[in-house]
Write a protein that binds this DNA or RNA. Sequence first.
DNA 1: CGATAGTTGATCGTATACGATTTCGTACAT
DNA 2: ATGTACGAAATCGTATACGATCAACTATCG
Lengths: 233, 233
Amino acid sequence: MHGEVSPESKSERAYTAIKTRIVEGSFTPGYRLVLAKIAGDLGVSVVPVREAIRRLEAEGLVTFERNVGATVSGIDPTEYLYTMQTLSIIEGAATALSAPLIDSVAIARARAVNGEMRECLEHFDPVRFTALNQDFHSILFEHCPNPHILDLVHRGWNRLATLRSSTFRFVPARARESVQEHDALLRLIESDAGADTIERAARQHRAATLDAYLAQVSAPPEPVPYSTQEENQ
Amino acid sequence: MHGEVSPESKSERAYTAIKTRIVEGSFTPGYRLVLAKIAGDLGVSVVPVREAIRRLEAEGLVTFERNVGATVSGIDPTEYLYTMQTLSIIEGAATALSAPLIDSVAIARARAVNGEMRECLEHFDPVRFTALNQDFHSILFEHCPNPHILDLVHRGWNRLATLRSSTFRFVPARARESVQEHDALLRLIESDAGADTIERAARQHRAATLDAYLAQVSAPPEPVPYSTQEENQ
DNA sequence: CGATAGTTGATCGTATACGATTTCGTACAT
DNA sequence: ATGTACGAAATCGTATACGATCAACTATCG
């Protein structure tokens, strides 16, 4: 048992391994990515790991500083804001472009997922709800014919995943509205509403979640021990 | 005595060097990026070059294939289409977000640039016109407060630069319309039109260039797959 | 007691070396 | 003449080695 043809390079494996741990949350924001450590864990040398980290850097999942090292990015609360805003635009467009290509089967699946979300509202589990939320939206934008846009949407979701906020943990009230808006969105798509209408609705849907979050964090008295300056609006 | 403290790593230098040559066009699409060659030219080893290429790969400027190598991407004409469509969305949003922050000085500068473009129409030089076009739009979106979006706009422009088509070489007729639309866009911004209006105008402006290009390259007047007919609602 | 210079350890940056894979040309057989 | 098999050259992938840099700690001086 030797020489199994490995279809993916070690660099690739390092990339997916690190990315997975970041997205799944075992590498939390701020986590220090030490090259030798990771290389050791994966049983490879540092060179492939370096390449992997360069890619992750270009994607914005990790922050890199010369002669210091890489850390999982996403601590900054303004980062969340920027990411959500960007995603509202990109995902809105992706959903609109995708809409004409969504068949009734996909609609039914989306509706089923949204049903689960509705059930989930009872004994509320923010993490599960967020996961379902991603499933739901994936169904809607995954048919987007423009691969660039689709890629940007995925990157946006990954970024959000690193922030691990589960958003809805902070604004549980928003969850209920969210489910309703999902239904409305599905109806729009089903009725072949104009791309413009769908785009606006999808963007608005996400923007509303962001607004709810912002309203929430600006009210409570407990300031975060890190940096809490900036962003007045 | 020893070399001046170099604030940037060789990896960094390799990155900017390669990127510059791609954007400036001395590395044309399809160009084969041989690691050892580049390393030799830059007087470094292959390791930093590999890292640089990984980053460029993640940005989409180069395409990478395992055990084969990297090539400057952008040969595919559909790539142009996808990039333009994506950019129309991103740049539209960036311009709209930027608009409220554009002061009269910037407006004046933009108007001056557009004046040069108008002059340029006489003895038409597509390359110069395209460069001015970038200057013009840069003034409009550069104030965008969301760094992610701004970054995406830059990446989009870079991608376009690699395709080096100068677009207007293919559709010179579009140049004249373009200048007029620029004026209209400036008027909208000056009059504090709604973000929505500005976004729509900016997006439409770029989409129209894309449509003109598509109409040009496909002689048979087929309904174009990804054009911008989405004004119904 | 506080501040600053020196020292040590951890970690990064890059070069070099060598095995692995692909590509392409050439010779041979049909 | 065409197709296949073999082999050599080019290029990539990864490991290892070592110098460079940064951060933390300690010791010494005021």
